[in-house]
Structure formats: C-alpha cells, structure tokens
Design a protein around this nucleic acid. Structure first.
Lengths: 148, 148
DNA sequence: GATTAATAATACTTTTTTAGTCTGATATAG
DNA sequence: CTATATCAGACTAAAAAAGTATTATTAATC
C-alpha cells in the first residue's frame, strides 16, 4: 500500500509545462517534441494537453505546423494550477470533499487537522511557479535528448 | 479524476483508534463494538487492526472475551503513526519514493518543492495526537449509536 | 483544392489499487 | 469441551489510473 498524491498524469503535465516554458521563445512546440524530450507517451500527452488547454494554461494549435504554446509567462503559472488542472482539486480525505459522507463534521477535530494540512499543501504548490522550476531546469532543457 | 491521499483503510484506522482511545478505561473492546459504533465493515476492520497491531499501536486479545486495546496513552499516538501504519509511509510523488524513477533528481527544482510539501504534511499529522482529536469527540463517543 | 501534417475527441483496453469477503486455524474463558 | 473471539492469508469485485486506437477536424503548403 503506497500513498501517493501525484499520478502519472500530473507528473507528465508538470514535465510538459516545464518544457514549454523552457522553449517559450521558439513559439509553437509539437506534441511529439515534448513527448520525446520529456519521456511522455505521445497519445497520453494529447489527453493531458487537452485538460491543460481547457483551463487556459496552454494553447493548442491544430493543423500542419501545429502544437502547443503557453498562454501565460512562466512566472504566472503555479505548480498547483498545473497539477489541479489534470488531477482535479486536491483533497486529502473524503470528509472534506463530500461532507455528507461523514456524519461527524463539526464535532470531529480530525477534520480541522486535515483541513489545515490541505491548505498548507496547496499553498506550498501555489507559491512555486514554473519560472522557479526553470531556473535549474535550463541546463537540462537545452540539449536534452540524453535525458532518457 | 480525484486526488485523495487517505484511503478508506486509513480513515477506518483513525476511527478505530479514536474509539479505542475514548473507551480505553473499559479495558478490552471487541471488534464488533468498534465496527458497529464507527461504521466499519467488521472483516475489513480485522485486517486493519492487524496492521495497527504489527506496529505496536494496539494489542489484540484473542479468544473469548477478546478484542482490542490501545498500547499507549492517546496523547502519545499521532495521526501520522496511525495513517502510515495502514497506508505506508506518505509520499506525494514517485520521484521522492524511487529516485531511480526520475533522471532529473538534483537538477530539477520541483523535487525540492515536493519534498518540502511532504515534510510539512507529515509534520502537521505528527503534531495531532489522538488526545487532541478526542477532546471534541467525547460528546460523540459516549452515547454514539445515533451516529450512523 | 488536394495532400499532408498536425491535433481533437472519444471510446476502448489493460493494469493496478482499493475495498471487501470468506474460510480454516487458533486461542481462551467458563 | 464448547462457545466466543480473533488470525492469517487467499480470494473476489469494483474502481481508478494508465495507456492505446480510431475517426474526425483543422490548417499550411504545393
């Protein structure tokens, strides 16, 4: 049994956004490029990119010469946005998500602890922007075929 | 897609421990009592209790008049202990669990953010003891058949 | 405007995890 | 020695995650 909060989809979403941020100057980046460089299954990336596009994190350009492009500067995009775009809003337990599921909301102090933990976690992820991640990622992102 | 870190098993483990803590003075509590009061499937509780026993959080008494009993005072048991006994150690993403799984440990700043988030989360859960939870749970735990 | 190169959208499949059940064994009080 | 408990592990079912495939659409270019 292994507790894990970030699924592959979330991990791939982050990798994709990091790559796009690192190559933002080059205009449109093809899905294939992103997938190859960041080691993401291409068709899976398609699905993930659609979610990212739906919340306005990136623009999808169709047709020949199409691909992906960020819609905001890297400094204006938080890890939280990226992760939640793909995974849905983060909850640590069910009580907080569906209050009806637990008859003890109000009386039970565990709720308070979970709520606090959740708030902290989301705040930490919100504070980290793509630009922050990039500062040490650049070396990797430039000539990054040796990555796999 | 729903991000959730606490599984049913973890939720049940917490409920069980809270109930035992609230009834610690009564000596041994049967599995059936815990299950009924806290709305946990009895056979599932058996498995969960075994995990809790394995890490020394509770004592299982076999035979007629058997049941469960806490091994430590409620103030000495943290939510983190209980949850991790059942779910395994909390990790937020795979990179931190299996370093080999990610070629970018070291270069990638995302690791630092996840690591920090994880530390904070575990600290929050560690600080909360069963005794803390109990202070507002007592009202419920006393005559708690109306709970379901 | 036909061809080619790209993604869209959705349905499908496979794998893994979670949740729960069942069964034969074991232990103990009375 | 019988009734009442849990043990330990095998088993099953359901849900979620991960990935694939297929048909449709879009746009650049020749």
């Amino acid at each position: 049994m292994l507790m894990m909060i970030l699924t592959k989809a979330g991990e791939y979403a982050l990798r994709c956004m990091i790559y796009l941020a690192a190559h933002a100057d080059q205009g449109i980046t093809t899905r294939r490029d992103v997938a190859q460089a960041m080691n993401i299954p291409t068709s899976f990336l398609a699905k993930i990119a659609q979610r990212l596009a739906r919340v306005g994190l990136l623009q999808i350009v169709q047709g020949a010469r199409g691909g992906y492009r960020l819609l905001k500067p890297a400094i204006a995009i938080s890890m939280l946005e990226v992760v939640e775009a793909v995974e849905g809003e983060i909850f640590l337990n069910e009580c907080l998500l569906r209050k009806e599921s637990c008859s003890r909301v109000g009386t039970c102090k565990a709720h308070i602890v979970w709520s606090k933990a959740r708030t902290n976690l989301r705040a930490t992820l919100q504070q980290a922007t793509l630009a922050d991640l990039l500062s040490s990622e650049e070396a990797t992102s430039g000539s990054d075929t040796s990555d796999r």
